[in-house]
Write a protein that binds this DNA or RNA. Structure first.
Length: 487
RNA sequence: GCGGGUGUAGCUCAGUUGGUUGAGCAUCAGCCUUCCAAGCUGAGGGUCGCGAGUUCGAAUCUCGUCGCCCGCUCCA
């Protein structure tokens, strides 16, 4: 599948009612998308699959649902206020952009020294380490504002891409958290943030949930919901957006067991994606290198999918140690701890996190399902969605759009709807109606014909094979059940 | 944010040196009655992304702006 196929999927999504661009009538809002009538069904089914797999089917995981707005101190404790931003600089000559700290790390010692002298003149502070040195330089350069760029240039900071001294812009700070105000007036005391991850809602409720659910280590708390990040660069359709939905599991364990559980959940999560019918060869687990790890994490696996635009992350499974609970214990009045009966003392549990993007999973399912086939010299576009995920499970057609066949079809679609999502289509030739449903990803089509009127049988047609079988109308629900469970 | 590309009907695209925007598909109504999109008749749908400028006249030329795509960076 080539890179163009994302465009084809965007087009199909709009044409069939999966995804529309947000605020389209006002010219659109950058990288925000709305789910249409088919999209919302697919998304709900995807989320239900996750909840069923992570929460409902397990006795050691419970769910919760925290508010999007939280006390601002949550984000100070979590490190997001401090760390969730990156000063960036651009080289106007090469048009390349760098994170300032990464850029400085790669410079020669004399360049760093020259910068240090320029910033601190004659009394530089003590640097605990080389890393600390870079952090402090980055901070000061960022604070310099108007003169930062020329300072970089004068100190001879080179562009790793060209090897030449860069024509640098002033460093600019991007805070990735959306700020808002609580209360009718916008004074500074009312600043709040839209959460950049759902995880913190779980951490600050750890003790509440643990005590009320009477769970013992190891156990998990799961949540799904919207999160917001002011991404510098968005794109690839639904892949990177500023408003997105997460499915997160925080699994609390004894500190010495994190490695074991990290392996366990990494494999569980990879298998889950496979269970959605996604091509296994296009899924992989990739361990993070040391330099890729987030500030809170000591080990991490990504579940990745091979998109037309390359291997990209669907989900991160991370060992966060005791970082989060420690942070809240240091900042908050109320302590988050666990009484371990074996050791007869209070401990701070470590956590293994699995954090998946709903919209990314949605995009993956669509991209993976998209097919163009040649049938009798004609192109057939279909979505080979897993039947359990398809927005419409079964469409019903009267072969002729008249009289008793239509009445019968209306009765049958009602029957289908007792358990599955059904849709009746009376318009156009039967072939055209099958193809419409192929494009929507509907796995089964039931057709009422002349024979139905004589012996109460109908044909059921399979989307993928296009083969039909004649069945009794009494067995429709049984047929659908067994066909779905067989996939 | 910077660089490159792009924007005409729901979708895919035409549109000449500047002169009243077209096609195919889709949609809707009717006819036809047929198990894999192409039968017949008719209808609806566009301030050519938006705003200025040049011009007698702009989809077309210029500038600005917004959205989308690719790259740089970051992440779910």
């Amino acid at each position: 599948m080539d890179i163009k196929s994302i465009d084809k999927i965007v087009s199909l999504c709009k044409r069939r009612g999966f995804i529309f661009q947000s605020s389209e009538v006002y010219g659109g809002l950058a990288s925000t998308w709305d789910y249409g009538h088919l999209g919302v069904e697919l998304k709900r089914k995807l989320k239900n699959e996750w909840w069923q797999n992570i929460v409902t089917s397990r006795d050691n995981v419970v769910g919760m649902d925290a508010a999007i707005l939280m006390h601002p101190k949550v984000w100070e404790a979590s490190g997001h206020v401090e760390n969730f931003n990156d000063p960036l600089v651009d080289n106007k000559d090469t048009k390349k952009r760098y994170r300032l700290d990464h850029l400085l790390e790669g410079q020669k010692p004399e360049v760093v020294e020259s910068l240090t002298n320029a910033i601190f003149k004659d009394n530089p502070p003590e640097f605990a380490s080389e890393e600390d040195h870079i952090v402090i330089l980055t901070q000061h350069l960022n604070d310099l504002g108007e003169t930062g760029g020329s300072l970089l240039k004068d100190s001879g900071v080179r562009d790793p891409h060209s090897g030449a001294v860069g024509n640098w812009t002033n460093p600019r700070q991007f805070n990735l958290m959306f700020q808002t105000h609580i209360g009718p007036t916008q004074d500074s005391s009312s600043i709040a943030y839209l959460r950049p991850e759902t995880a913190q809602g779980i951490f600050v409720n750890f003790a509440n949930v643990q005590i009320t659910s009477r769970q013992k280590l190891p156990f998990g708390i799961a949540q799904m919901g919207k999160s917001f990040r002011n991404e510098i660069t968005t794109g690839n359709f639904l892949f990177r957006t500023r408003e997105f939905e997460q499915m997160e599991l925080e699994f609390f364990v004894h500190l010495e067991d994190t490695k074991k559980w990290l392996e366990y959940w990494s494999n569980e999560r990879l298998e889950w994606f496979k269970s959605l019918g996604i091509t296994p060869e296009k899924l992989r687990l990739r361990a993070h290198g040391g330099d890729e790890l987030a500030h809170y994490s000591s080990a991490c696996y990504d579940v990745e999918y091979q998109f037309p635009f390359g291997w990209s992350e669907l989900e991160g499974i991370a060992d966060r140690g005791t970082f989060d609970l420690d942070q809240h214990n240091a900042h908050a009045d109320k302590k988050q701890s666990y009484f371990d009966p074996q050791q007869n003392k209070h401990i701070v549990p470590a956590v293994v996190e699995s954090s998946a993007g709903v919209d990314r999973a949605f995009l993956t399912v669509l991209v993976d399902a998209y097919r163009e086939e040649e049938v009798n010299g004609e192109k057939r576009v279909l979505l080979k969605l897993a039947p359990k995920l398809a927005p419409i499970t079964c469409a019903v057609f009267p072969l002729m759009n008249k009289g008793e066949q239509v009445e019968k079809a209306e009765l049958l679609v009602k029957e289908v709807r007792r358990e599955f999502s059904g849709f009746i289509d009376t318009g156009g030739s039967i072939g055209k109606r099958y193809r419409r449903q192929d494009e929507a990803g509907t796995p089964y089509g039931i057709t009422v014909d002349h024979q139905t009127m004589e012996d109460d049988t109908v044909t059921i047609r399979d989307r993928d094979t296009m083969e039909q079988e004649r069945i009794s109308i009494d067995s429709i629900l049984d047929q659908l059940r067994s066909r779905i469970s067989a996939t």
